[in-house]
Structures are given as structure tokens and as C-alpha cells.
Computed example of a mutant assay.
Amino acid sequence: MKVEFKKVRDFGQVINDTFTFIRQNLKPLLKTYLIFCGLFVLAGMLTMLLQQYKTLNVVNDITRNHRNFSIFGSEKVFGFEYFLTILFSLASYASMSVAILSYITLYVQKGNQIPTNEEILGYFKYYFFRVFGSSILLILMLIVSVFFCVVPFFYLFPFVAMMFPIMVFENGSLGYSFGRSFKIIKDNFWITFGTLFIMWIIVYACMTFIVLPSTIFSMIGVFTHNTPHISVAATLITTVLQSLCQVFTIIPIVTITLSYFSLVEQKESAGLMERIAHFGNTEKPIDTRPEEY
């Protein structure tokens, strides 16, 4: 049975339905990810590789010659590639959020039918720059919150995460989405925070499991040389694996989407009213996708 988004869920149901939906739509979700996010992920990976290569050369040069890290070394480390890496990382997450949220929006509108790439493209072009620009401002806000004893960061975390589904599902602006997220999460903060927190732990555990072997190999190289030396090859392999592991970010995006629909349904009963309006209509939704031969 396909996952129905417009329904109230508890903590366990959100987590279970996250993996159920991903399992039912694994191939089209991965296809959507590769088509709409692949270029940003590849660009981010290349700039990160260049950044890591330069950083390792600086660090290894310092350890070989027993020098202290200076402002000149920092200029080599925090160069143009460093800022490009940050930019493409934000673009990767924004593109992933928009692509997956667009997929789910159309999936719900079409009566749990898989949308076409052309349909997703229309949503993607409309929302990408809005989400990308908003993500830059929100990241700056979260960075500032870290300096206030970290507590504001964890408090704002679920509200910020909820803003992107609101932008896509309700065509909301940054200001509207920010206020709307507080409205629908009100009285449900801890369950929303806990659900997202558990999902991110699962995601980071999966990423760590994949990246761990190359990280261990790199650490062995540090302690087995006469002078501390970080393996360039192992570090670059780790960087590539980290970039590929970004696909796991699909999981929390689906989770926050299910939480959004659950909270909206709990407060506004939009899905219930829709089902009442269509009560007695036994016709199946029309599949508007082009036929494949």
C-alpha cells in the first residue's frame, strides 16, 4: 500500500513511513537526485578535492619542516577553493531539497503517482533560487546562534528545517515560511525535534560507516611514519565518499515532509476535508504521464 501523506502520524509512524516511501520510490528518487543534483554534487566534490589537496600539502610541509602554522599558511588553506566549496555545498543541499520536495508535491497532487522529470523541472526552476538564497541567510542565522551557548541553534533547528517544505508546498516567501513554521510546530516542538534528531543520527551513522575505512587508513599513516604525515590518497578518497554519501540526505527531507503534513493535518484537517469532499467518488485518478513503449 502506498504511503498517504495527508494524515496525522506519531513519532514511530513518521520514521516507519519515511523508509516505506523511500523503498517504494527508490529508483525514481535516485533518478531525480542524479538529474537535478548531480551537477552541484560533482562541482562541490571537485572543489573540495582541490581544497583538501592544498590543505594537506600545507600541513605536511609544516610537519616535515617542524614549522608553526602562520597567517601565510592560512591564506593557502582558506583560498578561493574554500569559499567555492561552501557555495557548492549550499547549492547541493538546496537543489536536493527542491528536487525531492517537488517530487513529493507532484506525487501527492497526482494521487500517489510518480511524476515525470519535465513536471519536476518546472517546480525546480521556480523554487531553486528562492530556497538557495534563503538557505544562505538561514545558515548565517544558525552560525550566529551557535555563539549563544549553542542552545538557540538546537531550538531553531526544527523551525528552519520546516521552512523549505512550506516554501514549496505553500509557495511561501522566506518571511511567510519562517512564521508559518513556528505556527504549525507550536505545541509539537519536542516530537518534531526528536524525529529529525533521530533521522540525522541514522544518516550520519550511514555516512560514517561508508567513510570509516578510508579514515582509519589515513590515521594509520599518521602514526606509522617517523614524522606525522597525512596520506593524500586516503584523504581524497574520503572526500569523494563524503560527497557520494550526500544521497543519504534524502532521508531527513522525506521525514520533515511527513512531519509537515502530519502537523498541518493535526491543526487544519486539510486532508480529512479533501477526503470528505471526494466521498463516494470511486474513480481512480487519471494518470497524465506520457505512455512509454
Score class of each variant (00 low, 15 high):
S95Q: 11
S95H: 07
M96H: 05
M96C: 12
M96Y: 05
M96P: 00
S97K: 07
S97N: 09
A99K: 02
S102Q: 02
S102Y: 02
L106H: 07
L106F: 03
Y107H: 11
V108R: 12
V108E: 14
N112M: 11
N112D: 15
N112L: 14
N112Y: 13
Q113C: 06
Q113Y: 09
T116Y: 00
N117H: 09
N117D: 09
E119K: 02
I120V: 09
L121F: 07
L121C: 00
L121T: 08
G122H: 10
Y123S: 10
F124M: 01
F124C: 06
K125M: 06
Y126Q: 14
Y127Q: 06
Y127G: 01
F128K: 06
F129G: 06
F132W: 12
S135F: 03
S135Q: 13
L138W: 00
L138C: 00
I139Q: 13
I139M: 10
M141C: 13
L142P: 06
I143S: 08
S145N: 07
S145F: 08
V146Q: 12
F147C: 09
C149S: 09
V150R: 00
V150T: 10
V150E: 00
V150C: 10
V151E: 01
V151T: 12
F153P: 04
F153T: 10
F154W: 13
L156P: 03
F157Q: 08
F157D: 03
P158K: 05
P158L: 04
P158N: 08
V160D: 04
V160A: 04
M162H: 02
F164R: 08
P165C: 06
I166R: 00
M167L: 03
M167Y: 00
M167A: 01
M167T: 02
V168C: 02
V168I: 15
F169M: 14
E170M: 05
E170K: 14
E170Q: 13
N171A: 12
G172M: 06
G172S: 15
S173G: 15
G175N: 15
G175R: 15
G175D: 14
Y176A: 13
Y176F: 15
Y176W: 14
Y176T: 14
S177Q: 04
S177C: 10
F178T: 11
S181P: 03
K183R: 15
K183L: 12
I184G: 01
I185Y: 03
D187Y: 02
D187Q: 04
N188I: 04
N188C: 02
F189M: 05
F189R: 09
F189K: 10
W190H: 02
W190K: 03
T192P: 02
T192N: 07
T192D: 01
T195V: 09
L196P: 06
F197R: 06
F197A: 10
F197C: 10
I198G: 01
M199W: 02
W200Q: 09
W200E: 11
I201S: 11
I202F: 12
V203I: 12
V203N: 06
Y204F: 11
A205S: 14
A205Q: 07
A205T: 14
A205D: 06
M207V: 13
M207E: 13
F209D: 02
F209Q: 10
I210W: 12
I210N: 05
I210A: 13
V211T: 15
V211S: 12
V211A: 14
V211I: 15
S214K: 09
T215S: 13
I216H: 07
I216L: 13
F217Y: 08
F217E: 10
